[in-house]
Simulated scan of single mutants.
Amino acid sequence: MELRHLQAFVTVAEELSFRRAAERLQMSQPPLSQQIKRLEHEVGVPLLRRTTRQVALTTAGLAFLSEARRALRAAQAAPQAARQAAAGQTGVVRLGFSGPTSHEVLVLMTRKFRERRPRVRLEVHGPVFGGELVDRLNRDEIDAGLIRLPVAGSGIRVRELTRHPIAAAVPAEHPLATRREVGVLDLRDEPVVSHPTNRGAGIVSLIHSAFMQHGSSPNIVQEAPDTHTILSMVGAGVGVGFVPVSAGHLKVPGVVLLPVSDIPPLPLALAWRTEDPNPALHALIDLLDEIAADCRTHADDPL
């Protein structure tokens, strides 16, 4: 079914005159009549009643008219929709995040992206931890992910957005709880509740490296699957934990966070597949400098 035949029918239906319709379409009447006949043959029922004096819609023609108009509107909108999708103005970005300590950045990123690309749908998947997030990227289950550095694997690009200082989570009744900050030496004999290496590899490596520089290793007495559980175990008196200071918004009762002066900050980055062609994803990537600036502002002047 050709669009020009639909346009011819709609014009005749609006004018109820082959002469006036032909004038609007800038064509002669005989080819216009032939187009309507071909259309009726294709549909299989008469769409117009013709007499020497008038043209009228049949019941079938009246029903066909609304659908023909809809088809023409869709055909007119299709090129614009394609151009908008190619420009990253519409579409979907599936975004994974690595845990509750990335929530602040997730909020800032979502806010900025919605301001600049309000017609792109941002699907949030998570929490997806460490190596699992990279695996899901490689399987094309997500388009990008907020992840702690370093990232292992090939074919993945990363852009660091912010760095979170490390804090020691201690029970509120702990002798160190009244301190403004602590160092690794203050904690080397403490029992530690730790992330498992397969879920928090970045922070686990960071903590082990810091302890090794002081000639020791952390006394890990229990592993916990995520930051919130670590804080809960600390509140229960199991031991101390090491978490990004951004975990402070979790506000677990009976837990105090103390900055650790001699452990470097933990980077948080956006990761994506190097060869991903998704224009909506590239629209997000184009905003990363602004998002990183928002993260710095937020760190200096918390909301």
Rank of each mutant, 00 (worst) to 15 (best):
P175N: 05
T178W: 10
T178E: 14
R179T: 04
V182R: 06
V182Q: 07
R188S: 07
D189G: 12
E190N: 07
P191W: 02
P191F: 01
P191G: 03
P191I: 04
V193Y: 06
H195K: 02
H195C: 11
P196Q: 03
R199K: 14
R199V: 11
G200W: 08
G202T: 01
I203R: 02
I203M: 10
I203W: 01
V204W: 12
I207R: 05
I207V: 15
F211L: 06
Q213F: 07
H214Y: 11
H214G: 03
S216E: 12
Q222D: 06
E223Q: 13
P225K: 04
S232W: 14
M233F: 13
V234E: 08
V238C: 07
V238S: 14
V240L: 13
V240Q: 04
V240H: 06
G241F: 06
G241P: 00
V243I: 14
V243A: 05
P244A: 14
P244Q: 09
S246D: 11
A247E: 07
L250A: 11
V252C: 11
G254Y: 09
V256M: 08
L257I: 10
L258C: 10
S261Q: 15
D262S: 09
I263W: 07
P265G: 12
L266T: 05
L270W: 04
W272L: 03
T274L: 12
E275V: 10
P277L: 05
N278I: 03
N278P: 04
P279F: 04
L281M: 01
L281K: 02
A283L: 03
A283D: 02
L284Q: 01
I285A: 10
I285Q: 11
I285K: 03
D286P: 00
D286F: 02
L288P: 01
E290V: 11
I291G: 05
A292Q: 00
A292W: 04
